[in-house]
Design a binder for these strands. Structure first.
Lengths: 213, 213
DNA sequence: TTTTGATTTAATCAACTGATTAAATCAAAA
DNA sequence: TTTTGATTTAATCAGTTGATTAAATCAAAA
């Protein structure tokens, strides 16, 4: 019964700084991505959002409901851009490699906790993610196979190629806490700088592997 | 008081299949690495170990205590082999690259959940891990810099080189649930086969990147 | 057989947690 | 001013969870 009024309120609250719904989602996203589902308490979310527990359940019926929203967002962030790039028929495969790398590194510089969060949740609750299918049926895939046929690319398992591109782009963000732990470690600025360099270099490195027999 | 008798029992129980302590640790390792600290209940561990809750607390005073043991094991698994390889003064840097890759892929084929587990825990509770220090002070490092000086290796940030080696080796295991989700996905056997191929190829790919300017 | 320590059973605790409810408050629209 | 909906406060509930305890059982050593 309470929830009918909710929808109407959204229309009313026109251009305020941030709606209560958004405050809750923002807080939930921060905590869920940082600590995972089980480690986060609904009371923590309410506090982080600057509201109270009752209101949280007034907007989102349950912790699970709220979580699913965050999860959906993250999956979209993670796969949507990829899908668009890889199916563009106007770009060369070389250009696509650059775009995939740029896309991931830029995104991860903004949301560094996303990959660990996504990997955890996918493992805990195997979703219908068709990452491999997207790649296998992509225009990018056809371009690569054409390149192999002409000899421009050395024969190789294209799945391994794809693994290489995403590994080099994503892993540094997953392993970040390890490189940044301890004394003589990297500052945040140095890490960003390093990733910017990788953004330039990964496509070149990948190109080099395409010549390896 | 109960815990004094525990130590003595270890001496007694000579060559039985598996001590109760070990059964508990094995169960805890399985569950913790699969699901993380918060998602695992002490009752789950007891059940998985085939004993009861009271006995679990009789051996290990608390869930935390038990967790620290598993965590320590995992960190050791993850970094000890690496440290040995990288400081061997008798092998070439090329050989070291092969060994690092082999070491990680072999280990991860046995314990696929370790990296995600370690990354999660390190982030949640930043430990004094000196991964970067180990690498920076290693003999491997000196060999690389010597190679750059002679021009055998193109000038590059050695941290990026290290990142490349571990990214290519480890990430496929972290991303595994994604590649294996959905319909037209890879079987376990195919995944292992793919990793065996990577074990051969990654050193070659890395070699290729060493020539990139 | 007696004794000792390992293990189980079962009950209990206190704290936490997700969720709900009713009443009060508040701000803004009508 | 009245009304309406958003939000708070405070209390409560039931289920979970980590942990402890006492008594019973069991197996093997002494």
């Amino acid at each position: 019964m309470h929830h009918i009024s909710k929808e109407m309120s959204i229309l009313k609250r026109k251009k305020e700084e941030e709606s209560t719904e958004q405050k809750i989602i923002t807080a939930a996203r921060k905590l869920f991505t940082q600590k995972g589902f089980d480690a986060v308490k609904t009371r923590d979310i309410a506090e982080e959002a600057g509201i109270n527990l009752a209101l949280l359940n007034y907007y989102f019926r349950s912790k699970e409901k709220l979580f699913e929203i965050i999860m959906g967002e993250s999956l979209e962030t993670f796969f949507l851009g990829f899908s668009n790039i890889v199916n563009d028929e106007k770009t060369t495969y070389t250009k696509k490699i650059e775009q995939i790398v740029s896309n991931y590194i830029d995104m991860l510089l903004k949301s560094p906790d996303t990959p660990l969060f996504v990997m955890n949740q996918v493992r805990a609750n195997p979703k219908r993610i068709e990452a491999k299918k997207i790649f296998m049926n992509s225009y990018f895939m056809k371009q690569l196979q054409a390149g192999i046929k002409t000899g421009e690319i050395a024969p190789m398992n294209v799945v391994n190629l794809m693994l290489n591109i995403v590994s080099l782009s994503i892993f540094p963000f997953i392993g970040r806490p390890i490189f940044q732990a301890g004394e003589g470690s990297i500052t945040d600025e140095q890490f960003i700088e390093l990733m910017m360099e990788r953004k330039k270099m990964i496509p070149k490195w990948i190109e080099a592997t395409l010549k390896v027999k």
